[in-house]
Design a binder for these strands. Structure first.
Lengths: 222, 222
DNA sequence: CCTTTATTTAATCAAGCGATTAATTTGACG
DNA sequence: CGTCAAATTAATCGCTTGATTAAATAAAGG
């Protein structure tokens, strides 16, 4: 009589193992990456993530324990490798080529558009658990590499020495990262694009602007 | 017998008008600004906002209707004026002074630290209601002013002409805005600070870097 | 002193959330 | 062919959220 649309204890659950092993787990991680990058961990809904992965929310508990477990797995398995790649792009052994370095950095960001979103959501924000780990485990090392690069160029006489290396490094990071962080705005206001052709000119312009701005004076006027 | 801690229908509610008129409203707006900037509209909790303002959540319904009404009031009454001030800083009438302009912009950001947080939370993110309004009502006009400024300098022969004005404007905005957007990181990694003394040197460095990077060649080599 | 109006409260509601559970199916192994 | 572990589901639980409501109070006006 009441609630005819709801069948109580009728058919029941079940129907496993049609899929390849690890497929559900991977689908959940991919869906979680997109949802968490778009809405943040707090606002991301497990039901939506599971629905996008084509399974029920209970699978998250089965494969990852709870929401935090899913978040951790996403960080270590999909964010970590990309951050490591980004860090490696900054590691210059012999002769640092600013334009090549910028190109690697920018193209990694363009190839993983969820990364800037995730950083915005989970790092540039008060009181996130990921924030401290990001700063300690990646930003300080990456920033240190950048500062060392500036100092190296200063010592080589290619960059002027009257500018604090930390500030110069911050400026370089601003130029490289901001357009991706602010993509919803820069795309509409400045015509920012993320295809290879556009990025090539973009990197060339950035490198030239920065190099000219940092160039040591040719020992003439001033 | 059951639940001795909960007094059922004992004292009852009430106790109005001890405060100055408009005080509750202002307190709610201030608390909302801080909570929404810190956690985003979606994750901000009305109970927490009301608690911080020293009233009950029902006051939000009374003064603003619902959560959306509180959000709208916050945008028009506290965010709008600061954005207008920021836009006015970009409006140069006679002779544009890049360093003065940067100084105004940066100091406004430093004086309202909730603004970069709010932009990060509500603009640099997919599918927010404020995002479209921010872009149409502020970013496009502000960006246009910046682009016009670059073109003016190019026409005057102070900036080189072989660089797209839109890209040059985007680079300038990157330098000015990113350190504040990423403050949790830039503070720890690059020693970013927001007091007047530090910002003064910061603005001077940024202006010099940008001007030198954009300077038109003195009609010699290359 | 009585009435009225603006403000504020405690209590409650329905919806949505993360998490848990019992039931069920599939494949592997003997 | 029977047994068992792994994987999956529907259903449900407790909690938090945004919103609503009836009651209560202070001040103002007559």
């Amino acid at each position: 009589m009441d609630k005819p649309h709801r069948i109580r204890r009728a058919t029941g659950p079940g129907r496993p193992r049609n899929r390849a092993p690890g497929l559900v787990r991977a689908a959940l991680l991919a869906a979680a990456r997109r949802h968490i990058a778009a809405h943040g961990v707090g606002a991301a809904c497990l039901r939506d993530i599971a629905h996008e992965a084509g399974v029920t929310p209970a699978m998250i508990a089965y494969h990852f324990g709870d929401k935090q477990g899913l978040y951790e797995a996403m960080l270590t398995e999909t964010v970590g490798p990309v951050l490591a790649h980004l860090s490696a792009a900054l590691t210059v052994d012999a002769e640092p080529d600013l334009e090549l370095l910028l190109s690697r950095y920018v193209n990694t960001l363009a190839a993983n558009p969820w990364l800037p979103q995730l950083i915005v959501r989970e790092v540039f924000t008060e009181g996130g658990a990921f924030r401290a780990r990001f700063i300690e485990g990646f930003a300080k090392r990456g920033g240190g590499l950048l500062i060392a690069l500036i100092k190296h160029e200063q010592a080589a006489g290619r960059f002027r020495k009257d500018l604090d290396a930390k500030r110069a490094a911050q400026a370089l990071l601003s130029l490289a990262l901001f357009p991706f962080i602010a993509l919803p705005v820069t795309r509409e206001v400045f015509g920012m694009q993320t295809d290879a052709a556009w990025l090539k000119g973009h990197v060339a312009d950035l490198a030239r602007l920065y190099k000219d701005g940092m160039r040591a004076p040719a020992r003439s006027r001033r």
